[in-house]
Amino acid sequence: MTEVIQPSLTIDALGKKCPIPIIMLAEQINYVPLNAVIAVLADDPAAFTDVPAWCRLKSHRHVGSYELPQGGWSIHVRRNY
């Protein structure tokens, strides 16, 4: 198993419904350095699909989604450009 990279920035979108977690991610991604990882904490089931789909559309990289103990996920995205 590969080690989980420490995110440079964490967005707390817990309790936020789609598409707000994606909107927050799109706003914040330019505030981290290139190749840095940003973590989106979300518990709307839509975010689990939507964050990786956003990465595909925007050519950023979905690193992985990790379940949170209290429910939801920490979804890691690497800034590609």
Partner: peptide, 20 residues
Amino acid sequence: CTASTLRPSHVLEAMGVLTH
């Protein structure tokens, strides 16, 4: 958000495309 359920469409989920 348009359906009575809280889950996104199982079709869009299975495809891995935007659900919103």
